[in-house]
């Protein structure tokens, strides 16, 4: 490997600082003893303690967690099904259209997706709340899950499945004994990705939630409009910690799976 030269190192430091300095500041100020956000008053964890007393924030966090669990699970099942269709059914009629539609939410502005969903829910007179937000999140995250799983399926040696079939396994047995274990890391990675996307989504939730279904990002955002409190810094830090852990876990899974492959 090449040694890092000074200009490269400098560019790296600047790049990382540009991306992560704001977050670092936020994390630091979450440990600020002072009530004033911009004045450093010494190290303290009091805002984390007061966080536990803030019932509205805790409710929002619990809702976001439930939402992320349910929507990630639904999105992963949908993603697995569409990845199988794309990777295994050959060149069926409408495949290109299907692949395009799957990828569309990736590039579609969330505001538009959110507005469209809102109009739909209003149109069919659906009561807005937990389930409408779940549906919105599944719409967004299923495409990410599909892409992660499809990439793994495309790399899977077809002769493994053929060998299993040749050895007397029915197509269903082949799927559960060979295909599923082989792509399991990708399925888990897809789920984790969907989970984090749902957890930190603000835009879609703002459009599709109703009274009594305020998610954590929505709660944080609305609090900030009334002025940033160190409590919000603490809540954000916890959220960042959770998302970062899950993302690192997902990328480790993908990497380990790639290394284990012959």
């Amino acid at each position: 490997m090449n040694r890092l030269r000074a200009p490269h190192l400098l560019a790296l430091v600047f790049g990382i600082a540009f991306l992560y300095l704001p977050i670092l500041v936020l994390v630091l100020y979450s440990f600020n003893a002072s009530r004033l956000v911009t004045v450093w008053g010494g190290f303290s964890t009091r805002w984390y303690a007061s966080l536990l007393q803030n019932q509205a924030l805790l409710d929002a966090a619990w809702l976001s967690l439930k939402l992320a669990l349910v929507s990630a699970s639904v999105a992963t099942i949908l993603g697995l099904l569409s990845a199988l269709a794309l990777a295994r059914f050959g060149r069926f009629a409408g495949r290109t259209l299907f692949a395009g539609m799957i990828a569309a939410p990736l590039v579609m502005p969330e505001v538009i997706t959110g507005l469209a969903l809102l109009l739909l829910f209003v149109g069919i007179d659906a009561e807005r709340g937990f389930w409408t937000v779940t549906i919105a999140h599944v719409t967004l995250t299923a495409c990410f899950a599909t892409i992660v799983i499809q990439a793994r399926l495309a790399m899977l040696d077809r002769s493994l499945e053929e060998a299993a079939q040749d050895l007397g396994a029915t197509p269903l047995r082949v799927f559960f004994a060979i295909t599923l274990p082989m792509i399991a890391p990708a399925i888990l990675a897809g789920w984790l990705l969907a989970f984090t996307l749902s957890l930190d989504d603000l835009v879609l939730a703002s459009f599709t939630s109703g009274p009594g279904s305020t998610t954590l990002p929505m709660r944080i955002y609305s609090s900030v409009r009334l002025g940033v409190t160190p409590e919000i810094n603490a809540a954000s830090t916890l959220l960042i910690g959770l998302v970062a852990t899950v993302v690192v876990l997902a990328s480790l899974l993908i990497k380990r799976d790639a290394l284990a492959r012959p």
Binding site: D157, S159, L160, A163, A164, M182, A260, R261
Partner: peptide
């Protein structure tokens, strides 16, 4: 199989 296709 040519690649042996052993289940890893």
């Amino acid at each position: 199989f040519q690649s042996y296709a052993l289940f890893p």
